[in-house]
Nucleic acid binder design. Structure first.
Lengths: 233, 233
DNA sequence: TTATCTAAATTGGTTAACCAGATTGGTTTT
DNA sequence: AAAACCAATCTGGTTAACCAATTTAGATAA
């Protein structure tokens, strides 16, 4: 409980620091390549710990807005003040994604990865998808829980898509999907049995290198989920 | 130069730690809820600094595989060994996305965000998109560089889509897109002038709440880019 | 024997000291 | 006057000490 509060406080502090950095860049008219004040200077100017400053800078570095060079300084990336302001505003605004956003995004990604996997899969990819499918089927037939095997099947397809961005994004949204699924108890035995057929259809389409069919079968697979989630709301 | 090497070494160390944690979970048959050895124990067992251990744990925490509780310990998340192994393998394998992956993913996301924005945009969203469009047009007409304003127009649409996951992903791929664009000098003056019309078309479709048209116009906008990027390869 | 309480040890998180390398300003040399 | 050099200073990065909360184990009391 207290953890949550602390973490939120910490998160708030980071947001405040980021907005102060933005204000500083605007006020001092810092242009691409200009150097920010040192971490120590900022920490006493903003009256926060140096660690907090470092975290904020690293976050802005992640989004490509700043660049830290050891033993030298932190510099404004090659991006103008306009885009800088717009992007920082976005970063500050971003709330934690709701379940609906996660599902919507997952479906979008999976329809594409299925399509791409059908186009690009190697024999090795295909074998891995097949293995995941078999593991899944076996668990379901034995009446065991197969959430993990289901997940691995989908991740195998993402891998076969040959697009590392989409693969990464699948991994990022996976935890949120799983926890929410378990919270809502979406998967029951009937759906699992139906899942075997749907998974098999998807696999077959990817094997026969039919992108359109793969997308179609993936869409069918998500149809129930999609409706279920939106009715839940 | 040396920075790169060091950073790669650091990255390698983290990967090694993550795979060692995976081995440990497998070897000790740690199940969901089980406690990992303390950070200090791990650091001397793996012969790395405690900071490295913390980074690796935080990364696995980000992907929902571990959970750290202050003054208590780090625990295996509610995810079985099968999925744990599969996901860690994926995490270790993920390479930096190439330009093609980035563009492919951006197009996928933007076609959807345009569509969703047309469905869900509020009056406020619409105004912000309009402002971004005007700022872009003005720069282009004055013959100035308008890369930033172009970017902000697209981010405004992502915001209006009402899907925070997609919005986040757009922000994540943006830096890679920008740096590569500048590297390849994609945008020239002619494209910028053409861009005004295309942007205006997209805006009009979103204003008139026509999802299908919005997607179509966005597709047209990306057509040149898409071909250009793939020809570049 | 069981339950309860207390103090010591353990935990993840945080802070302050330290490090190596880059920068800078002044000095010396040519 | 200009170039070369050098030491003091400043930088982000790293490490070790510290902290408060928690857990644990043993002593005590019922």
């Amino acid at each position: 409980m207290k953890l949550e509060i602390l973490k939120n406080e910490n998160h708030d502090i980071q947001k405040k620091i980021i907005s102060k950095i933005r204000d500083l860049i605007n006020h001092k008219n810092l242009e691409p390549g200009d150097k920010l004040p040192s971490e120590r200077t900022l920490s006493e100017k903003f009256e926060v710990s140096r660690g907090n400053i470092r975290e904020a800078i690293q976050k802005l570095e992640f989004y490509g807005l700043l660049e830290s060079i050891p033993q030298s300084g932190t510099f404004v990336a090659n991006i103008g003040v306009t885009a800088m302001n717009g992007m920082i505003e976005d970063i500050l605004r971003l709330e934690e994604p709701d379940f609906k956003s996660l599902v919507e995004t997952r479906i979008l990604l999976e329809l594409k990865t299925a399509q791409l996997a059908a186009m690009r899969r190697t024999e090795e990819d295909l074998q891995e998808i097949k293995d995941a499918l078999d593991a899944y089927s076996e668990k379901v037939i034995n009446g065991e829980d197969a959430v993990q095997e289901d997940l691995l099947f989908h991740l195998a397809i993402a891998k076969a898509s040959g697009n590392s961005s989409m693969n990464t994004f699948m991994l990022i949204i996976t935890p949120g999907i799983i926890t929410n699924f378990e919270k809502y108890h979406v998967c029951d035995k009937n759906q699992a049995f139906l899942g075997i057929q749907e998974h098999t259809d998807i696999y077959a389409a990817i094997r026969s290198q039919d992108p359109k069919l793969a997308k179609e079968k993936m869409k069918a697979h998500f149809k129930i989920l999609y409706q279920y989630c939106y009715n839940q709301k």
